[in-house]
């Protein structure tokens, strides 16, 4: 193990050498070997995922290095846009029954944009008070964490909404026939979808620190921050994530359920397409 500490003024971080990383990667190779030996059939996927993560993280590291050196708003905006569009694609991929056409992508991407970007902006300007507000060392990690978590919430909530609307078609139409308007007719499905989107972050808040140390806090402690400072930042992030996930899921469920009905309040399941 390389024990050269960096000589930065206040924090001490042990730099990882390529040799350290290749030692760790041996563990992944071992896992792949075991998978082959035990005929689990996931060795290819393990290796591909490992290579992908190595390439992606190296690239991001390089891009961030560039961004941090420049602090140029257009470049940071471009980065944020790339992150959002990948997240939108990911949300679409996770839908069993997704909306056809642009809606399949748009509902997820738009609700994540509304929630993640506004919450990040709020945190940067009002809560943390970064100057300038778009300083990439703060903006990119914050936005990344918010997008990542909002993405899960939105994907789960939307998937829940469309799958249950499909299954409960008879009930929804019976409610319409009884003279209920579209919002009453999907009320129960909407509530269930929203709840399912919020459960992960609620659970994460409830067990934070007891079962595992959240990733960001771990990172800060490894980087040499005092534990209390790390805890405060982690708390801030959790609150932001909870708000972002909640707002994002609500926006997605609202737009999605609206799209399930047309202007004559008919249930339009033909607007959903089955994935694969």
């Amino acid at each position: 193990m390389d024990m050269n500490a960096t000589t930065s003024p206040s924090i001490s971080l042990i730099e990882l050498s390529p040799w350290d990383l290749s030692l760790a990667s041996l563990l992944v190779l071992l896992l792949a070997g075991l998978s082959w030996r035990l005929r689990l059939g996931v060795e290819r996927r393990v290796l591909i995922a490992a290579v992908r993560s190595a390439v992606q993280l190296t690239l991001v590291g390089l891009v961030l290095k560039l961004l941090f050196a420049q602090t140029s708003l257009p470049l940071i905006g471009l980065m944020a846009l790339v992150m959002l569009s990948v997240a939108g694609f990911e949300v679409m991929q996770r839908q069993t029954r997704r909306f056809g056409g642009l809606w399949g992508y748009g509902i997820g991407a738009l609700s994540m944009f509304l929630s993640s970007f506004s919450v990040t902006l709020l945190a940067l300007t009002v809560v943390i008070g970064v100057d300038p507000w778009y300083q990439p060392q703060y903006l990119i990690p914050l936005l990344g964490m918010l997008l990542g978590n909002t993405m899960s919430g939105v994907a789960i909530a939307l998937d829940n909404l469309t799958r249950h609307a499909w299954d409960a078609r008879g009930q929804i139409e019976a409610r319409l026939l009884a003279g209920q308007d579209w919002e009453q007719a999907v009320e129960h499905i909407r509530r269930e979808a929203l709840r399912s989107g919020l459960i992960p972050i609620i659970n994460a808040m409830g067990t934070a620190g007891l079962v595992s140390l959240p990733g960001m806090m771990t990172g800060q402690i490894l980087a040499g921050s005092p534990p209390m400072e790390a805890a405060k930042y982690q708390l801030l992030i959790m609150f932001l994530i909870a708000a972002g996930t909640g707002l994002g899921s609500m926006a997605a469920v609202w737009m999605g359920s609206r799209r399930l009905f047309d202007e004559r309040q008919r249930l339009r399941l033909d607007r959903l397409t089955q994935a694969r």
């Binding site: 008879g170 139409e173 019976a174 319409l176 026939l177 009884a178 003279g179 209920q180 308007d181 004559r264 309040q265 008919r266």
Partner: peptide, 15 residues
């Protein structure tokens, strides 16, 4: 309004 219409023209589905 569609809800009013469906209340007044009542459909009994087969199921």
């Amino acid at each position: 309004a569609p809800p009013l219409w469906r209340r007044q023209v009542g459909l009994l589905p087969a199921e």
